[in-house]
Amino acid sequence: MKPTVLIVGADKGGVGKTTITRTVLDYLASKNTLARAFDTEFPRGTLKRFHPDVTTVVDITAVSDQMKIVDTLNTSEVKISLIDIRAGLLSHTLKAFTDIGFFDAVNAGEFNFLLFHILGPSIASLDEINEVMPYTNGKNYFAVKNFVNETSFFEWDPAIYESYFKKARGALDVNIPKLNEMAFEQVELAGVPFSTFVKNKNSQGHNAKYSLVLRGYVRTWLNQIFDEYDRVSLHERLTDRAPSARSGR
């Protein structure tokens, strides 16, 4: 299998990048597919708190850490690498990856590349589409709309909506529903993957005492997201297999 890199990012902060990376890790685990993750919230790390076994905290602006990711793609036994890009560094990282020849290798068929561009319901967030989209040549670019609050991404104004999303032809829409705040906070407090919370386990794998109601909310939410990932054939795309026919905008 060809090594695959999935970058999850946005230049804007607070749009739920790490949350979505966590759901992708849960999704892959549900498919028994191994993945490694890089947490660029250097040096503290945020993703690592939830998925410590598979996550490495890196300084994505440092060449030595860029090497830790890119130079190990071929040698790592785990072929899927997720990079959770911290706020403000998406464009910078994509440019740096261009400079080191990563995208040349992608175009040469050496690596498989996917981009999860997390969009928040703001003009600033939508403005990023123009900057980010060209790096994927429109292929495997996922416009991930994270419904962090009751929002519509300007769908009520077709002119504004079209002006942004028409530029993203070929992009794959992924809609992330909102999770109940109390359930989200409980998982934050528990510091475990969403799927572990649903199974009522703590970080040591022991039985926990999480609320049945909140676990139910998280399970339903996670299942909706998994359905959405299935719809865009995310697993096939990450494992370098042909996407099924139902995927698309």
């Binding site: 049945l212 109601v213 139910g216 399970r219």
Partner: peptide
């Protein structure tokens, strides 16, 4: 709906 969604009966 809630009873079904949270899997109350099984648990």
């Amino acid at each position: 709906h809630l009873m079904e969604e949270i899997g109350y009966a099984e648990e």
